[in-house]
């Protein structure tokens, strides 16, 4: 079943076209990886899906609902779509636990006591039980990024978007964050991630899309895209990064 459908997406900043007539389908439970050079529009695309940036034209459908309707209230839609940023963006004045609880408390009107069992379980699952009461600046980058993932998961989204979530991490911390994604994949979470981790994309992606100049130039299963790229630009990009 197709969960997320993008049709003819257009997005420009001023007169600079950043997403150019882009189509993409994400099936339920699939992990789709977006690869491409810096500036190719990966972050912008993810921000558009989460409605942080309004698109200029085209349609975004989530589970059959046209979420790109400019008249639509974006708030309930965003609750269904988790987004994790490259720079973590934890709230520095709150402990890890408060970071995670804030949105469910405000939106679902649940008390801390009601939330605690589920949230403790999430921290436990990702090996962060002993860090619940720590502030972001007391945590390593890898721990912060895992808290950011938990924060998004606490809203129980149907789909998760990840924007180069390991790019700001020291190499030895990348593994612990990727393990979290493997777990989510095993659970059947639908995911779209922008990444420079080609090895990881090859291992877990169901579909890899190569973005260039705001278009998906080539897409396919990882074996095909990495093993036998058809477009000259895909070949050039891959030989530069692999």
């Amino acid at each position: 079943m197709t969960h997320l459908v993008l049709r003819n997406i257009q997005k420009s900043f001023g007169n600079k076209t950043v997403i150019d007539d882009l189509d993409l389908e994400v099936a339920e439970g699939d992990m789709v990886c977006l690869i491409g050079a810096s500036g190719s529009g990966k972050s912008t695309l993810l921000r558009c899906i989460n409605l942080l940036e309004p698109i200029d034209d085209g349609y975004i459908e989530l589970d059959g609902l046209d979420i790109s309707d400019p008249e639509l209230d974006p708030q309930p839609v965003r609750q269904r779509i988790g987004l994790v940023f490259q720079s973590f963006n934890l709230f520095p004045h709150m402990t890890a636990e408060e970071n995670v609880m804030l949105a469910p408390r405000r939106i679902k009107r649940l008390s801390r006591e009601q939330l605690r069992p589920d949230i403790s379980a999430l921290f436990q699952r990702f090996g962060l039980s002993e860090h619940m009461q720590h502030y972001p600046d007391q945590l390593s980058g890898g721990q912060q990024q895992r808290v950011a993932i938990i924060r998004a998961l606490a809203m129980q989204p149907e789909i998760m978007l990840f924007d180069e979530i390991t790019s700001a991490l020291d190499p030895e911390l990348v593994g612990e964050v990727l393990d979290v994604l493997r777990q989510l994949k095993a659970q059947g979470m639908t995911m779209v991630m922008a990444t420079h981790e080609m090895g990881f994309a090859r291992e877990v992606a169901d579909k890899v899309c190569f973005l260039s100049g705001g278009r998906i130039l080539e897409q396919g299963p990882p074996e095909q895209l990495f093993g036998n790229p058809q477009q000259a630009r895909t070949q050039a990009f891959l030989s530069a990064v692999l």
């Binding site: 708030q75 965003r78 269904r80 963006n89 949105a103 809203m155």
Partner: peptide
């Protein structure tokens, strides 16, 4: 952006 992305 982080707060809004959570649906707040």
């Amino acid at each position: 952006a982080a707060a809004l992305s959570l649906g707040m």
